[in-house]
């Protein structure tokens, strides 16, 4: 039975940490991402130091199921972790880049859950969440942007993003590899780059929380929950009126 009680006020623990009144305890986080074909929800504990610990996750890889499955996945991951939404200290949401319809399902879900339980929702670039799990040498992260293009970002050896996020055709991205100085590629197994492949294909709950760890630990006010579309909507302004009779 999923525990779903509502606590109308922010967790005391979290506010106290914000005010610098307590020493750090672990932060309980719900992480969601729908920027790739994976429908991802996970419950993660972030200790005062050290890497995040996964308590439970639900992931289905189906690009058309984001709208249907995300909330059930949240419910089921919480149930398996033995936690209620009211137990959470914060949420983390992948904000893309990602194909638009699926991406929005995750973002509006996170925003609504955060509103309903009055917890902060921290935005994370979804590519950062993949990179966060592959420390070490300079890294390229790519995900499927559809229309034969890739979303991508490059990361330095210390894990900071050095270029991107952006969207490019694989051939054009390949041309930029020497300049980006990356040694490995993570994320979608696409593009056929002449680089060793590593890391997860999709953002994971642990990766999402790792990418937001500093903000979660400091209790900082989250930034705007704004999707990284990277493309303008396909829409053309109508030209001259079409005639129905020959001129």
């Amino acid at each position: 039975m999923p525990a779903t009680a509502v606590v109308p006020t922010r967790s005391i623990r979290y506010d106290a940490r914000r005010a610098g009144l307590v020493t750090l305890t672990a932060v309980l986080v719900l992480a969601v991402d729908t920027s790739t074909p994976a429908v991802t929800a996970g419950v993660v504990e972030l200790p005062p130091d050290g890497p995040p610990v996964l308590l439970a996750e639900r992931v289905t890889v189906d690009a058309r199921a984001h709208g249907e499955l995300l909330t059930p996945h949240v419910r089921d991951a919480l149930a398996e972790a033995g936690k209620a939404l009211a137990d959470l200290d914060a949420l983390v949401c992948g904000v893309g880049p990602g194909p638009f319809t699926g991406l929005r399902a995750g973002m509006v879900t996170a925003a609504a859950l955060g509103h309903a339980v009055d917890r902060p929702v921290h935005p994370v670039c979804s590519l950062d969440a993949i990179a966060a799990l592959v420390p070490g040498e300079p890294l390229l992260v790519v995900t499927d942007a559809r229309r034969r293009e890739l979303y991508w970002a490059a990361y330095a050896a210390d894990g900071t993003r050095s270029a991107g996020p952006d969207v490019l055709a694989p051939a054009l991205l390949a041309e930029r590899l020497p300049e980006l100085g990356v040694a490995r590629v993570a994320g979608a197994r696409l593009g056929g780059f002449d680089l060793p492949v590593t890391g997860p294909e999709h953002p994971t709950p642990v990766g999402l929380v790792a990418a937001a760890a500093a903000a979660l630990r400091s209790g900082a006010e989250p930034g705007e929950l704004t999707p990284l579309y990277l493309r303008r909507p396909d829409a053309v302004e109508p030209g001259a009126r079409k005639r129905v009779t020959p001129a």
């Binding site: 779903t4 009680a5 509502v6 949240v74 939404l85 879900t109 309903a116």
Partner: peptide
């Protein structure tokens, strides 16, 4: 759905 889950 998110509101329905959160508000039970």
């Amino acid at each position: 759905k998110a509101y329905a889950l959160a508000l039970d």
